[in-house]
Each structure stands twice: as C-alpha cells, then as structure tokens.
C-alpha cells in the first residue's frame, strides 16, 4: 500500500463517517416515518442474484474486487 494513498483514504473515511454522523444527528426519523425506507427497493442490494452475477463479472474482468460483503466464492476466472 502506498503510504500517501493510505493517509488520503483514512482522511476521506473519517470525513465520510463524520458526515454520516452529522446527517443522522441532524434528523431523527421516527419509526412511523419509515414507510419509504421499508420498501424492498430501498435496500442497498434489492436484487441479490443479479448483484452476485455482476460481482462475478467484474471480478473476472478487472483487477479490483471487494466492497460490500465478505466471503463469497473464489473461482479460476481471476
């Protein structure tokens, strides 16, 4: 890992986490106001099978991988 890259990403991560924290602190979404959030399409990954297919394609065609989950299967495609 390049040290400068690591420092930059750590700084960005702290900013992102602070931003998320600030956003949440500023707005209290009550349980009875979470009707939209409860919709299936509001999930980060509403179509797991399609997402798995995508990750497999990207894993086999690009040099990077990872991000949203742990585990998953290895394959001889990369």
């Amino acid at each position: 890992m390049r040290p400068r890259t690591g420092l930059l990403m750590q700084a960005l991560l702290v900013v992102a986490l602070l931003g998320l924290g600030a956003g949440c602190a500023a707005t209290r979404v009550k349980p009875w106001d979470r009707d939209l959030l409860a919709e299936k399409k509001m999930q980060f990954n509403p179509s797991p099978s399609e997402s798995d297919v995508d990750q497999h394609i990207y894993f086999s065609k690009e040099g990077s991988t990872g991000g949203s989950d742990v585990g998953g299967g290895g394959c001889g495609c990369n």
């Binding site: 998320l20 956003g23 979404v29 979470r34 980060f44 991000g67």
Partner: peptide, 16 residues
C-alpha cells in the same frame, strides 16, 4: 456503518 439520514435517504460506508 449504515445510517438513516432522512425519511428518504439511507447511506453506508464499508471498509474491507
């Protein structure tokens, strides 16, 4: 870390 930001907005940061 996943946060509900507003009634319409949810965001997350993952490090792996």
């Amino acid at each position: 870390l996943t946060r509900v930001i507003t009634r319409r907005w949810i965001a997350a940061v993952n490090v792996s």
